[in-house]
Amino acid sequence: MAEKTVPATREETAPREATRAQEQHIAPPVDIFEDKEGLVVVADMPGVESADLDVHVENDVLTLEAKTKHELPGEPYYREFQLVNFFRQFQLSDEVDVDHISAELKNGVLTLHLPKSEAAKPKRIQVRTQ
């Protein structure tokens, strides 16, 4: 599963960025691993509400996009981070069953399950002895 890093492929995958006012966004760090059903993508996206998260697949490109709101409780006097918007894209192989992707957001961590399509699942081949 190859990554479509945003800056490198901006023209190709996100032309609208060019027409829009420049927004701050970063690519969330992800873990990608395989389990029996398929691929699991885990992304750290702190500060994101599920209503502001947009996960979609278009032309086999998986897009994670989220907006964050940062409400300051008082006068800041020391700052190490800001909550900014997230954007990252991945090229999916056609072995992923796009219709059955499930997503879960918990404690600022997004977990996506990308099941393999039936055709891509391992099949046991019966060996006949004569």
């Binding site: 300051l72 008082g74 006068e75 190490e80 981070f81």
Partner: peptide
Amino acid sequence: PLVNLYEDKDNFF
């Protein structure tokens, strides 16, 4: 973790 510090009249955050 990274932290931000804020302050108002009655609290630190």
